[in-house]
Design a protein around this nucleic acid. Structure first.
Lengths: 235, 235
DNA sequence: TTTTCATCTTGATTTAAGTCAATGTCATCG
DNA sequence: CGATGACATTGACTTAAATCAAGATGAAAA
C-alpha cells in the first residue's frame, strides 16, 4: 500500500510537468521506473562544464541556474529554470559533455533521467518525443532572443525587455518582483552588478520605474516597452 | 519511367541529408510526397521576421543566413546554413510566427515541408523524431556557445574561435578560407566591419595570422587557440 | 580601358560599459 | 546588542568597440 501510494504520488507529481503532459498512466509509470530522485540545498552544484553527460533533469521543486564562466571569472547565466521545467535535454541526444554549469538557487527537488533509459523511452514513445520537440523548440527560440538582446540591444533595453517579460510572467501590469538577486540579474543580462545598479538609477531618474528593493514599479509601462524595442537615442 | 527516375533522384538527394539518415525507403517516399521544392537566386529573402509559419526547410544546395535586425538597422546573423542542413524546425513545433529573417547567400535549392504534414510525419515516425531531436540538440548547443561568445569574450577572441572552428570544418591546419564576406562575418561575430577590419590588422601585427583576401593563414595556431579561450590581457 | 559600385581599410572621435575602490544597507548570528 | 558578511550603490577612471568620415581596393560593366 505504501508502495502504491508512493506511486500515485509520483504520478500526480510528474503529470503536472509539461514534458509529460497528456501521456497515459502506463507510460507515466514507465517514466517513474527510470527516474532517480535528487535533492539539493540552496547553492549546490548539480553539474559542471565538462562533466560527462549524466542525463536530463526535471525540476519538481526549486530553481536552477544554468551558466557559463569566462576565463576571467565573469559569469553569464544562460537560463534560470523553475519547477515544472527541464534542462539538460540536449546533452542526452548529442552525448557530449555538459556544456555549462548548473547550480541550485533554492532548495531543489529534481528527477534525473539517465541517458540510455531516457533515449529508449523517447524513441518508443511518440507523444513524449513530440512534447520534447516542443520544449526544445521553445528553448531554441529563447536562446535566439537572448542572442538578439546581447548583440543588438544596449543594457537598458535588455533590462526593459526583462521587466516586460517578468510582468507577463507574473500577470501584473504595473509592478514586478525580481525572482533573482540583482547580481544574478546582471549576469542574466550579460553585465555586472555596478552597471545594472546605475541603469536602475537612470531609469528611475527618467521616471520609467521605481525601485523598492526587489520590487520594481513600472511607473511608465509604455515607456518601458518602447525602450525594450529600441537600442539607444531618446531622452 | 521519367516519374520513376525523378523519384529515385529525389530519394538519393534526401537520403544524403543528416535529418533523413537511416530512414527506410518507404518513409523517404512519404517525405518526398510532402516536400515542396523551392529555388532562389542569390540574395533573395525566404522569409521575414513576423511572417506566419510556413514550415521547415532543408537545404539541398546553396547557403542561407538566418538573422535579426535591430531598430537601428544593425544586423546580427544567428547562423549560416549550408547544403544538407535544415532550418525553421522550431517554428513547426511552437506554431508561432517566424522569429527571424532568412535570406540566401547563393543560388539555393530548398525543400519546404509544410507544418501540418511534417508534424504528422514526425509523430508517426520515431526515427525521424530522434534525428530531429539530435539536430535540435546540436543547435541548442551552438546557440549556447554563441551566447557565451557574445557575453564573455571580446571580439578578437570571438574571431579566433571562429577561425579555429573554420579550420576544423575545413580540415585544414594552418589556413582557412572565409566562406562569407568580411562584412557578413562581422555580423556573425556581433560587431561591425570597421571593427573586424581593425582586429584582423591587430592579429596580423601580432603575427598570429596573415590575411590574404578571403584566405587567412594561421601563422601561429597555438596562439590563435589560446586567444580563442581567453578574454583579454596578453600582448 | 575607364567608370562604377560594393567591399574593405584606416583615422579621429565618442560613448557605453567595465574596472577599481569605497561606502552603504540589511539580515542574520554569535 | 553590536558585529559579521552578503548584497547593493556610488564615484572616479579606463577601455573596447561604435560612430562618423575619408580613402583604398578590386571586380564587374559600360
Amino acid at each position: 500500500m505504501d508502495a502504491k501510494e508512493g506511486m500515485e504520488n509520483f504520478i500526480r507529481l510528474i503529470s503536472a510537468i509539461p514534458l509529460f503532459n497528456g501521456l497515459p498512466t502506463e507510460q507515466l509509470d514507465a517514466i517513474r521506473r527510470i527516474a532517480v530522485e535528487k535533492r539539493y540545498s540552496k547553492g549546490q552544484t548539480i553539474f559542471s562544464e565538462g562533466d560527462k553527460t549524466t542525463g536530463f533533469f526535471v525540476i519538481v521543486e526549486g530553481r536552477v541556474k544554468i551558466y557559463k564562466v569566462s576565463s576571467e571569472g565573469k559569469e553569464q547565466i544562460l537560463h534560470i529554470f523553475e519547477a515544472g521545467q527541464s534542462f539538460g535535454e540536449a546533452t542526452v541526444f548529442t552525448g557530449q559533455r555538459m556544456p555549462a554549469n548548473a547550480q541550485t538557487l533554492a532548495q531543489t527537488h529534481l528527477l534525473l533521467f539517465k541517458r540510455n533509459a531516457f533515449v529508449d523511452l523517447v524513441s518508443s514513445n511518440p507523444s513524449l518525443a513530440m512534447n520534447l520537440l516542443g520544449i526544445m523548440s521553445k528553448k531554441l527560440r529563447q536562446f535566439a532572443a537572448q542572442i538578439e538582446n546581447l548583440s543588438l540591444k544596449e543594457i537598458p533595453a535588455r533590462l526593459a525587455s526583462y521587466l516586460v517579460y517578468l510582468s507577463e510572467e507574473q500577470g501584473t501590469e504595473d509592478a514586478v518582483v525580481l525572482n533573482v538577486s540583482k547580481g544574478q540579474l546582471a549576469s542574466l543580462l550579460g553585465t555586472i552588478p555596478e552597471t545594472l545598479s546605475r541603469i536602475f538609477a537612470k531609469l528611475s531618474g527618467q521616471d520609467l520605474i521605481r525601485v523598492e528593493g526587489p520590487k520594481i514599479i513600472l511607473t511608465d509601462r509604455d515607456g518601458i516597452e518602447n525602450l525594450a524595442e529600441h537600442t539607444k537615442d531618446d531622452a
